[in-house]
Simulated assay, not measured.
Amino acid sequence: MAQEANAVRVRTLFLSDLHLGTKGCQADALLEFLKAYDADTIYLVGDIVDGWKLKSGWYWPQAHNDVVQKLLRKVRKGARLVYLPGNHDEFLRDFIGVNLGGIELADYALHEAADGKRYFVIHGDQFDLVVRHARWLALLGDGAYSAALFVNTYLNVVRRRLGLTYWSLSSWAKLKVKNAVNYISRFEELLAAEAQRQGADGVICGHIHHAIMHDQFSGVSYVNTGDWVESCTAVVEHYDGSFELIRWAETTQVPLASPTLVEAAIGERAA
């Protein structure tokens, strides 16, 4: 496989929750990340394209198209790409088992790492009781999350003007609100239990936009890839079988949201 100049070569790359087709997607940061890393195998762990948002209104800037083209270019250069749809791109579940231009579509995968350990890879919405049994509530929650992102964008414009670093309102709420903490814990437990049932040593998932790696469930590794809306995170497997959670915004120290358009909007409202 041809490698991009100066790119870090890894065995496997796991990405989820890009939410292409939404204004919250950090496509420019993602493009820089994809230029910086090459992988033998790439897993797209769901919610890559946000079908929910695209149904309500089309939004697809050039940067989002560039992300798709970049991934396809990696496939043409020899990378294996496995797409595991999530709830926001569930329309692709109609094509499970199909190979679309070199992209393998599957409901889940069992990934064998370089050290022989096996990982159950899945988006995770299948284990979210709200998504499974109260879709209307999930849609309501998605709207509330979008509202939080909108407020957060303006808040961080002010923080940048004060010389402060980026701060995530929704991430703070997830860790401070008791029900949210319990929800995350329960979600992790269900995924770890399913990994055990599958005979795997760990689980790699997305869905809840909470990037983390730990071994708190009887030796079962829990890995969540996070998202590219707020945290800009990904997981890579190195050639020795070790896993690394990459927080791209912290690595590059680039602001997660470009202030230009938001500051212009503030200026227009103030005028």
Rank of each mutant, 00 (worst) to 15 (best):
A138W: 03
N156A: 09
H207Q: 07
E268D: 15
K176T: 04
V131L: 08
A138T: 08
I122Y: 01
L105G: 04
L155D: 14
S185P: 07
V10C: 00
Y43H: 10
M213Q: 03
E90M: 11
Y154W: 12
S171I: 01
L20I: 05
G267A: 15
Q69N: 12
I48F: 05
L149R: 15
D47I: 00
H123N: 10
F120K: 14
T233H: 03
V45E: 13
R247Y: 03
F243V: 02
F14C: 06
R160N: 10
K35N: 09
G143S: 09
F120Q: 15
H209S: 02
D215Y: 06
E189C: 06
H209W: 01
I96P: 04
L105F: 02
G46T: 06
E244I: 02
A180F: 00
L175N: 00
N179E: 09
R186S: 09
P255N: 07
R197W: 11
S56M: 11
V151D: 10
G143D: 12
Y239H: 00
R9Y: 00
V157C: 11
V98R: 13
I42Q: 10
N152S: 09
D66K: 10
I42P: 05
C25G: 07
Q126L: 14
L164I: 14
A180G: 00
F187T: 09
H133T: 15
T225I: 10
E188G: 08
N87A: 04
A173L: 02
L71S: 11
T165M: 13
L100K: 06
D201R: 01
V236I: 04
A270M: 13
A271E: 15
V229C: 02
G267Y: 12
A249F: 04
L30N: 14
I204L: 03
T251C: 06
V98G: 14
I103M: 09
L155E: 12
Y145N: 07
L71T: 08
A211Y: 01
V131N: 10
L137E: 08
N99F: 05
A249R: 07
L20H: 08
S218M: 14
C25L: 12
R161Y: 08
L190M: 11
L34C: 04
G101Q: 07
L44K: 06
S185D: 02
L30D: 15
K55H: 12
L245D: 01
N152W: 00
L164A: 13
E237Q: 08
V45T: 12
R197F: 10
L84A: 04
Y166C: 14
M213W: 01
A39F: 01
L261V: 13
L140Q: 12
G102E: 15
P255W: 05
V67I: 09
V98I: 13
S242V: 01
R9D: 00
R159L: 05
I96E: 13
H214Y: 07
H210Y: 01
D115N: 01
Y222Q: 09
P61S: 15
Y43R: 09
N224L: 08
A180V: 00
K53I: 15
E32A: 08
D17Y: 04
N87M: 05
K174P: 02
Y37A: 13
V8Q: 05
V158M: 12
D94P: 10
